[in-house]
Design a binder for these strands. Structure first.
Length: 210
DNA sequence: TTGAGGATTCTC
DNA sequence: AGAATCCTCAAA
């Protein structure tokens, strides 16, 4: 365990991640993503990806140089480049060579907020600092150089830990965002009513508001 | 507050 | 060609 992790935070152990991403994802809610410089944010939105039945996952067609870390040991980061501009950060789950992971989609900053504001000049509210996978990665400085980072040993100065807040017992569960295949899988979880989630749940065309 | 459209580069 | 997205701008 990294010596820079405060005593009052409990590191998630390797075995936590060595399970299906659909089990790990909801349990990551309310956990803290932590950088060695003191930045910390509470994870409030996640999505599960991977497995031979998930055509929306980067791992669907087998390992490539890009997705190598997603097929590696659980508890490491898989960081990918997206839309020519953004980085997305995943936590590798399951067993080696399985290719399953949890995408970190949104978090609520709790510490080191000034540094996040520096890295996210476009954010007009603190609510915009990490309320999306690209924003979250930017606020934490996660890019290609963090691909493969070990969240259990803190090899790259990033870990995930708990502060005593348990995962919510009633998370909102629904379809994933921003994909075009396997759109019906209910593999997105977020903390109910939380203001820092990335997007409003898509509103059904017929059953609109009211 | 909401929606539309452009940005930009890696991957297969 | 299309992408696990973000930002700006316009209009209400």
């Amino acid at each position: 365990m990294p010596d820079w992790l405060p005593d009052h935070w409990t590191l998630l152990p390797r075995r936590f991640y060595q399970r299906p991403p659909q089990e790990v994802a909801p349990e990551l809610l309310n956990a803290l993503l932590i950088r060695s410089d003191g930045r910390a944010a509470r994870i409030v939105e996640v999505e599960a990806y991977g497995g031979s039945q998930d055509p929306a996952a980067h791992s669907y067609r087998g390992p490539t140089p890009r997705t190598a870390s997603m097929f590696g040991e659980a508890g490491h980061l898989y960081v990918y480049f997206s839309y020519g501009i953004h980085w997305g950060s995943n936590v590798v789950c399951g067993q080696e060579h399985e290719g399953v992971a949890v995408l970190l989609r949104a978090a609520e900053p709790v510490q080191g907020i000034d540094r996040m504001r520096e890295l996210r000049p476009a954010a007009r509210h603190d609510r915009d600092l990490a309320s999306g996978p690209g924003k979250l990665s930017q606020a934490f400085g996660l890019d290609k150089s963090f691909d493969g980072a070990d969240l259990v040993t803190g090899s790259h100065g990033v870990v995930i830990a708990r502060d005593g807040t348990p995962p919510p017992t009633d998370p909102v569960i629904g379809p994933r965002i921003g994909i075009s295949r396997a759109v019906a899988f209910p593999w997105r979880w977020h903390v109910r009513g939380h203001r820092h989630v990335s997007a409003r749940a898509p509103r059904p065309a017929s059953a609109a508001r009211r």
